[in-house]
Write a protein that binds this DNA or RNA. Structure first.
Lengths: 333, 333
DNA sequence: TGTTTATAGCGAAACGGTTCGCTCTATCTA
DNA sequence: TAGATAGAGCGAACCGTTTCGCTATAAACA
C-alpha cells in the first residue's frame, strides 16, 4: 500500500542507493534532488522506520520503565522526557512495573526485544542484576530517583537526605521536639535517605530519637492515612509530622480531616512533592518540592548525549536540589 | 553480537524455516523442539522484534497520543492502557501534543513512521482531518473522551451532558438558583457537552439562564482561578459554582482560599474528576467522578479486538456513566 | 595533455526475521 | 499394494531500508 523507496527509485529513474543517500542528507545533484522530492510528495512517501531500524541496528526508541505510572510525579516525568526525546526524533515506550521486581525484569526483557536504543528508569529492585543484559548489549541506562550501591550507572538524583534535614530543622527551629516521620521502608533507597536526613536533623539538635515516632511502610496513601491515625490517637503523640512522600502526605491529610483536628493548631505538618496541593489545602502547606521537570530533562539529556557519543566513559551522577516551600501548616511554639 | 535465528539454525543443523516455525508455534518434531530450545538457551537468543516487524508488517506497538500527559487523568489512563496492552505483548509509545493541533498532526506522522499497529488518542483537534492518513492505511483508531461530528471512529466516552445535568440538579435541589459554571470553550467537545447538561438542568427547573454566570475559557488552573475571582468579586454573584473540569476545580479552590471566603458558607461548589482531592480538601467536596480505569481498559480492549479481528465493521461507541460523589461543599437553603 | 581528485550514482549484499510452495517420508485407506 | 493424506523440513523470495565498494564523469592540477 504505502510507497517505498523502490517506488521513488522507479519513478525518478534513479537507484535505491541514491534515493537513500538523499533521504540521509548525502550528496545528490540539484536536479535529482528536485526529482526525488517531487516523487516523494506525489507518492506520499514516508520512510519506514522499522526497516531503517533493522538496517541501521537502531530504532530511535527509548524505553522508560517506571515503578508506578499512576501518579503525578511519574506523569510529569514522562511528559517532559517524551517532549525532549521527540524533539530529537526519538520515540518513548513506557512501561509500568507497579513496584513488582519480577515484572520489572520481564519489562526489561520486553524492551530489549523491542530493541530500544536506551532505557531510562526509576528502579524498583534494589540490585542491578536485572540490568545485566542491558549492560552487556551496550545499551545506555539512566537511573532516576534511585541508584544502586553495587554498580555504577548514569543517574539523576535529588538530595533526599538534605531535603529531609532541612524540613525537620524547620520544625525544630519553630520549637518542635516531638516530631514524627512517616516514610517508606528500608528496601527503598529514597526512603532510607529521607529517614537518614530526619535522624541527622534530630541529632544535630541533640533531640533523642523516639522510635515510636518513626512509621515505616509502603509509599502509598493508605500508609500515610494509617500511620497518621496511629500516631495521633495515642497518649504519647508528636506535635509535628514530616510526611516524606506525596502519597503519604495525601493520606495524612485525609486522616487529619477525619480525626476532626486541624493544622497547625492541633498538629504541625510538612508535606512532600506537590506544589499544587500546597495551594489547594487550607491553610497552605509547608512542603518539600522536587525539581521534577529538571529531573526529567536532565535524564533525557544524559541519554541523548550517550546516544550521540557526546558523553562517553564514566557514569555521571547529577544531584539536584529540592526546595522547601513556605506555608502556614507549622505552629511556632 | 546478539544471537540470531541463523545461529540457532547452524547450531541445530535445521533450516531457518524450521526454527522460525518453532518460534511461532508450528509443528516441529519433539526431538527437534528440544534441540532448538537448547540452542536458544545456550546462545541467549531473543527474537528481534524489529526484524519480525518488518517481515510481518506489524510492530506490536500502539501509539497513545494525549493532549496533555502532565496530569492525573492522563497518567491513570496511560498506566491502565499500558498494563492491558503489555499483557498482549503490545508496547505503548506515548506522545503528548500539549493541546497543540499542529503538534498533534506531527505526532500522528511520527507514530505512522514508527509503524504503530494502532492509535489510541484523546484528540485535541475538533476535526478528524489529521487522521486521514491513519485511516487510509487501515490502522485502527480509538478515541477517548472526545469524538468528531464529521466522522465515525471507535470511541469511549462518558456522558458528559448527563454528568453536568445531575450535578446542577443537585445544586437546584438544595435550593440554589444562581448557579455559575466554569468550563472550556466551544471548540472542546467535552466542554460543549458539559455546558449543555448545565443548560438542560436549568431549563428543566425553569431557571432562566444568566450568561454572566457562564465562564468559558481554557481547561486549565488559571482559567478556574480567574473565572472564580471574576464571578465572586462583583455585586451580582452566584451562590453556587459548577466546576466542570479537574484543573478548573483546582484553580477555583485556590481562588476561594485567596479570597478568604469558605465553602459551603459563602459559596457552594461541585467539582470534577479527582476523588482524592475531594477527600483532601476540607470540607469534603461534592464531585463528579469519571470511571477513568474503565475508560482506559475499554479503549485498550477495543483496540485489541480490532487488531485481532474479533471486532470488525461499524465503529463502536462506548458510553460510560459518571458518578456523583457526595460531599459537604454545598449549602442547603 | 595526461594524471590526479572529487563528485554522483549504481549494484548488490547486508539487517533478521517470515512464509510460500515444494519434497520427502510415514501412516492410513480402500 | 497403489494411491491418498498428513506431518516435518527445506530453499528461496521477500519485507524496506542502508552501506560498501566500484565505476563513470567532470573539474583541478601539473
Amino acid at each position: 500500500m504505502a510507497a517505498t523507496i523502490r517506488d521513488i527509485a522507479k519513478m525518478t529513474g534513479l537507484s535505491l542507493a541514491t534515493v537513500s543517500k538523499y533521504l540521509n542528507g548525502g550528496n545528490v545533484l540539484t536536479e535529482n534532488r528536485a526529482l526525488i522530492q517531487n516523487a516523494i510528495e506525489e507518492l506520499h512517501y514516508e520512510v519506514n522506520e522499522v526497516a531503517r531500524g533493522l538496517a541501521k541496528n537502531c530504532t530511535k526508541t527509548i524505553g522508560v520503565l517506571i515503578h508506578n505510572l499512576d501518579n503525578i510525579f511519574a506523569g510529569t516525568i514522562i511528559a517532559h522526557i517524551e517532549d525532549i526525546l521527540r524533539q530529537h526524533d526519538y520515540g518513548t515506550i513506557v512501561c509500568d512495573c507497579r513496584g513488582d521486581k519480577v515484572l520489572e525484569e520481564q519489562e526489561i526483557k520486553f524492551l530489549l526485544n523491542k530493541r530500544v536504543d536506551g532505557i531510562i528508569t526509576i528502579p524498583t529492585s534494589s540490585s542491578s542484576a536485572y540490568l545485566a543484559n542491558v549492560v552487556n548489549r551496550g545499551i545506555p541506562v539512566v537511573l532516576i530517583d534511585r541508584t544502586f550501591e553495587d554498580s555504577n550507572f548514569d543517574s539523576v538524583l535529588v538530595d533526599n537526605s538534605d531535603a529531609s534535614y532541612r524540613a525537620v530543622c524547620t520544625l525544630i527551629d519553630k520549637g518542635h521536639s516531638h516530631i514524627g516521620i512517616i516514610c517508606g521502608d528500608d528496601s527503598e533507597y529514597t526512603a532510607r535517605e529521607r529517614l537518614a536526613g530526619y535522624y541527622k536533623a534530630l541529632e544535630a539538635s541533640n533531640i533523642s530519637i523516639d522510635l515510636d515516632f518513626v512509621k515505616r511502610g509502603s509509599l502509598n496513601v493508605e500508609h500515610g492515612y494509617n500511620a497518621t491515625k496511629a500516631l495521633l490517637t495515642v497518649e504519647h503523640k508528636p506535635t509535628a509530622l514530616y510526611l516524606s512522600n506525596y502519597e503519604i502526605t495525601l493520606g495524612a491529610i485525609i486522616a487529619i480531616n477525619e480525626l476532626g483536628i486541624g493544622f497547625p493548631t492541633d498538629i504541625s505538618i510538612i508535606g512532600f512533592d506537590n506544589m499544587m496541593l500546597s495551594q489547594v489545602v487550607k491553610p497552605k502547606l509547608w512542603m518539600v518540592v522536587q525539581p521534577i521537570e529538571e529531573i526529567a530533562s536532565s535524564a533525557a539529556n544524559i541519554m541523548l548525549e550517550r546516544l550521540s557519543g557526546a558523553l562517553q566513559g564514566e557514569a555521571v551522577r547529577v544531584n539536584l536540589d529540592t526546595s522547601l516551600l513556605t506555608g502556614e501548616s507549622v505552629k511556632q511554639f
